[in-house]
Design a protein around this nucleic acid. Structure first.
Lengths: 108, 108
DNA sequence: ATGAAAGGGGACAAAAAGGTCACATATGGA
DNA sequence: TCCATATGTGACCTTTTTGTCCCCTTTCAT
């Protein structure tokens, strides 16, 4: 059976929080500083730092220090790896099986 | 900005646990009863029932009752929905941007 | 019918996650 | 230099999650 990479878990857990997903969504457009990000959510700067810590730990955010500022960049590579191992294998013929058993119904 | 469906969160949270991911992996091959699943993990039947409850709540598992048995089927549709909204948009040009800034390096 | 087997609900304890605060460090500019 | 700005660490509290247990219901076979 296909085995799970040890750090897949960190990526999944990082994605499990809506604030962190929203942060990634913001970083998709451009890198942002920690304070900038904290100002956009109803949590304190320290709370944002914890979230960023989780994201960095999972490899989803790369840090670039520029003077006294810290720019947080999105790194989409872990998401891509995860998609290869976990998303695509689930898209195959399971739907057909469910349809055949009448547990799922075609839309419309 | 793209908005998140209210139940995306349930799917992400369901996927955040390694036991639950392993269960989904098992169900990819065929549907299994609760007791069967519980016997394959180092947790009690009750613990497995809770995990299945989370998966059912997220729509990732569909239940078929057959006599006194309950067959848990994988439903890959929520994973597919999630992939469309969250995985693919992250695969676009962010890598190029990171490479251009020297924050990422080509393999090999 | 009656007993064994499979499944489910609710209470509850332990562990992990999410959040805040106080305090400390580093940087850029007047 | 001197100070405002931006960030980082550790302790701490609260909520959520994870797992176990007891007890009950349903179903199948004898």
């Amino acid at each position: 059976m296909e085995r799970e990479a040890p750090d897949d878990d960190a990526v999944f857990k990082a994605l499990a929080d809506p604030t962190r997903r929203a942060v990634l969504d913001l970083l998709r457009a451009k890198a942002r500083t920690t304070g900038d990000l904290a100002g956009r959510f109803p949590i304190s700067r320290f709370g944002m730092m914890k979230h960023l810590g989780v994201l960095v730990e999972a490899g989803l955010v790369l840090v670039e220090r520029r003077g006294r500022e810290r720019f947080n960049h999105l790194n989409p590579v872990p998401i891509r790896v995860l998609a290869r191992r976990w998303i695509r294998p689930f898209e195959e013929d399971a739907v057909d099986r469910l349809l055949a058993q009448g547990l799922l119904h075609r839309p419309g």
